[in-house]
Design a binder for these strands. Structure first.
Lengths: 197, 197
DNA sequence: ACCTGAACACCGTTCAAGT
DNA sequence: ACCTGAACACCGTTCAAGT
């Protein structure tokens, strides 16, 4: 555990690479997030990352997996309120706030830069954890008679609802949006309420 | 008009390039959709596309704009039913069917390969046309007393709902999905209905 | 075990040139 | 007006080599 080797140049290159990748992503999106640029920023040779990640996609998957973990956490802490319905609603706003605050990360998590996500187990696991958080919030709104399939469908519907709003907002496809994140979250709340949130 | 020049090699290189780009996109997504590959497939030198498109992003935008036009058309023809509510519901299924049938195109239209879509006027126009179709379907469900802002919010909610379902399905993030498109569309219908479609 | 350097087959894009 | 060819600065990835 206390193996801070500092051997060649780094003691913990894998994490340094992840950090560099995160900054590059936040700065300019996935395109400039290049294996060579990450290596450069970590102060290491262009080929060093290959000791820690199989290829570029594996590095992207690791960044995205961390994003799913952070999203799940944001859902948990955002789910405040007196009733289950309120908690679900506020978790939805937290979801959208996460997307608007971390646009490039959110697009990496869901966009086409990570095709066949099934091939990255850590991605599947963390994504499932986020989905489970959502399912729990939806389930708390149902009574004991509600069959599991109905819960599952409602969970998918809720997730899709906030996911869709976040995506359209990130794409600039909704008219007359405020410039600041909280203003947009408020608009999102209105859209959610319009459909019987 | 009848200027089929056939001058150098092509009479209509711009359209030939668009066609080649469409095939490449359908075959392997946006990444192999490279300016040089498009030129190759059109049988023209690597630099020829620059006479017709400012850069790679402009070509992608043209492909995506055509996708928005086709999506709007799919919404129109899909909007069948005895009541406005039924027509809206079926248009939603048509939306999701379009996404599942043209996954790479759909991701190009909405994904991060086309950042700041505002800079491609043809994209904005065709996107607005698709949104208008959606708004019309939603508006037909409202009575005369409904204020325009409510229509706008409901339109955004409906669009986000189907957009979110399509996105999650394309990402393989929904469990236990059938393999065929129509089976998935049926599941989508169940999810839509679960939320009070 | 971890990192480097040279090399290969690609890209997007610019510029000068051809017809 | 439209197309080509050479060139530049990048990529991802492989392989042999260093410590």
């Amino acid at each position: 555990m206390a193996r801070t080797k500092e051997s060649y140049h780094h003691g913990d290159l894998a994490n340094a690479l992840l950090g560099a990748a995160g900054s590059l992503l936040a700065e300019g999106g996935a395109r400039p997030l290049t294996l060579r640029a990450v290596a450069r920023r970590a102060g290491v040779s262009a080929m060093a990352p290959y000791r820690h990640f199989a290829d570029r996609e594996a590095l992207l998957a690791a960044v995205a997996a961390d994003g799913f973990a952070r999203l799940a956490a944001a859902l948990e802490t955002g789910a405040e309120g007196a009733t289950p319905g309120e908690r679900l609603f506020n978790a939805g706003l937290a979801y959208i706030r996460f997307a608007l605050t971390n646009p490039a990360l959110y697009r990496l998590m869901f966009g086409p830069d990570l095709p066949d996500k099934g091939r990255h187990p850590v991605l599947v696991d963390n994504g499932a954890a986020a989905l489970a958080a959502c399912r729990r919030l939806v389930g708390a709104c149902a009574d004991g008679e509600t069959p599991p399939e109905a819960i599952e469908r409602r969970t998918a519907a809720k997730w899709a609802q906030v996911h869709g709003i976040a995506g359209l907002m990130l794409d600039g496809l909704l008219d007359d949006l405020p410039d600041d994140v909280e203003g947009r979250v408020a608009v999102a709340g209105g859209i959610l309420a319009a459909d019987g949130a």
